[in-house]
């Protein structure tokens, strides 16, 4: 299926969501095929692959470091979950609770040295309010994107799928679930290979569903660019997602060679 482009405007993401399709199921042979191609005794180093790595054709990621850019989504998403569940009355309260929780975990030793909580605990007040400001901005953008959606929820985390007998974990982005569809939000602007990234998100959603059910649709949103790309999901798209993963794994040297 093709990927359709839409300009962002109030209510546009809700209007893109399809409600009229029957769910398609991932072929039961696909997980084993992935394991065969990515696993085995010669499997290389441990690696997490997702839309980001596929869109960059396996190019190595820069070393991870916490910053406003990397922390805003984690904090903003937790705050949105609290808000949508009705735990807090305002986004400000939700963010304050999320920060407190992260700091508590760091203080009690539950969060490790490289964790978000530990990083936040090491910041002074000016640093912390800057991070919270970025998280708030992210969450407000999400509230704007969900305008017009009848029901929606915020997943607790992205989807992760450990490929059997391999050292590869697949990661699928998901920021909002609505009407059996996934909304994935990205920074910057869509690349020429953004469609490949969406198909990887689709694949991982199917792999992590208990019965292999695919979402009806994946909508990628680039708020900075004012654009959204929507993909009405099919098994053919999930298979293409698997091929992109194999190509990225080969390019990254995760596996010696992928035929």
């Amino acid at each position: 299926m093709s990927v359709d482009l839409a300009y962002l405007e109030p209510g546009v993401v809700a209007s893109l969501l399809t409600l009229d399709t029957e769910p398609e199921l991932l072929p039961p042979t696909l997980p084993a095929a992935l394991a065969r191609r990515l696993g085995g005794p010669e499997a290389g180093r441990r690696q997490t692959l997702g839309a980001w790595s596929v869109e960059r054709r396996g190019a190595p990621a820069t070393p991870f470091a916490w910053s406003t850019a990397t922390a805003r989504r984690a904090l903003g998403r937790s705050a949105l979950r609290r808000l949508v569940r009705g735990d807090d009355g305002t986004l400000g309260e939700a963010l304050a609770h999320v920060l407190e929780h992260r700091l508590d975990r760091a203080a009690s030793g539950y969060a490790g040295a490289g964790s978000l909580g530990a990083w936040l605990a090491g910041l002074d007040t000016s640093g912390r309010v800057t991070v919270l400001g970025a998280a708030r901005a992210w969450a407000v953008s999400m509230l704007e994107l969900t305008r017009g959606m009848a029901t929606w929820s915020v997943p607790e985390s992205d989807a992760y799928y450990a490929v059997e007998r391999s050292r590869v974990t697949l990661r699928g982005r998901r920021d909002v679930v609505a009407a059996r569809s996934l909304v994935c939000v990205r920074a910057g602007r869509p690349s020429a290979t953004a469609g490949a990234g969406l198909r990887v998100d689709l694949l991982v959603a199917g792999l992590t569903h208990p019965t292999g059910e695919l979402p009806a649709q994946i909508v990628g949103v680039w708020p900075d660019a004012g654009l959204a790309l929507s993909l009405r999901a099919s098994v053919a798209d999930a298979r293409r997602g698997a091929r992109y993963v194999l190509a990225a794994a080969a390019a990254a040297g995760v596996v010696a060679a992928v035929a």
Partner: peptide
């Protein structure tokens, strides 16, 4: 520019230079 969220959050500006540098560092 890095002081804007600090001011908005109502944090007192005891040492604006140091506070701005702190806020700047977390933005990469």
């Amino acid at each position: 520019a890095r002081l804007i969220p600090v001011v908005l959050a109502g944090v007192g500006l005891a040492d604006p230079f140091a506070q701005a540098v702190s806020a700047w560092r977390v933005t990469g």
